[in-house]
Simulated scan of single mutants.
Amino acid sequence: MSIVISTDKEKLDINFIHEFLTRSYWAAGRTKEQVKTTIEHSMCFGIYLDEKQIGFTRVLTDYVVYAYLMDVFIIEQQQGNGYAKQLMQTVMDHPELQAIRRWMLLTKDAHKLYQQFGFDSMDNPSWVMGKLNI
C-alpha cells in the first residue's frame, strides 16, 4: 500500500470531500458549491492510499504572516494508521509555508495530534476575536 500526499487540486475528489465534511461537526450543512469555493481559495492537500483519496486538509494563508489550518480529516476506515500525522507533517514541511509566523486552527477533539506539530493554547486568548454569521 502506498501513500501519496499531493497539492494538485485536479486530483481532489470533491464529492468525497463534501460527503465527509457534511458529516463533520465543523462543516455540517456546507454545500458542494461552498466546498468548491473553499478549495479554490486555499492551498489544499489530498492524501491518497493506492490512488484512492482517504483524507484532506486545506490552509488559508498569505504565505508570510498567517495560516489557518482547516478541514483536516482522514476517513473513519483509515483512522488510527498514522495518516493524519503524515498529512500534518507534509503540511508543516511544505516549502511555501515555511515563512509563516502565526498558525491557527480550531479543534474540539484532536488536540494531541496538533500538539505534536507545535500547536498549543494561545498565550493571550483574550486577544483573539471572532464574528460568526449564522
Rank of each mutant, 00 (worst) to 15 (best):
T31E: 07
K108E: 09
R23Y: 11
K36M: 15
D93H: 03
Q86N: 09
L21I: 14
Q78C: 11
A99F: 09
S121D: 13
I3A: 06
V35K: 05
K36S: 14
Y68C: 15
Q78L: 08
Q77D: 11
I47N: 00
R101T: 06
I47A: 02
Q79P: 03
M70W: 07
I134D: 15
D62I: 09
R58P: 01
T22G: 03
M122G: 08
V65P: 01
V59A: 09
I74E: 00
R102W: 05
A67C: 05
L97P: 10
M1Q: 09
F119M: 01
D120W: 01
D71R: 03
D8L: 10
L105P: 00
Y25K: 13
I14P: 04
Y63L: 12
Y83F: 14
H41D: 13
Q53E: 06
K108W: 02
F73S: 02
I134M: 12
P125Q: 07
P125R: 10
D50R: 09
M122Y: 06
Q115R: 12
Q53D: 00
I3K: 06
Y83Q: 03
L49S: 09
L105S: 02
F56P: 03
I134W: 05
Q77V: 08
F45I: 03
D109H: 01
H94F: 06
I54F: 03
L105T: 00
L113R: 04
D71N: 11
F73Q: 02
R58W: 05
Q115I: 02
V59H: 09
Q115P: 04
L69W: 00
L132G: 08
K36W: 11
T61E: 01
Q34K: 12
F56V: 06
L87C: 05
G55F: 02
S24L: 11
W127E: 15
L87K: 04
S2W: 00
E10A: 14
K52W: 00
E10G: 11
G82L: 10
S6E: 08
I14F: 07
Y114I: 02
F16Y: 12
D109T: 04
K131S: 14
S42T: 09
Y83A: 05
A27Y: 04
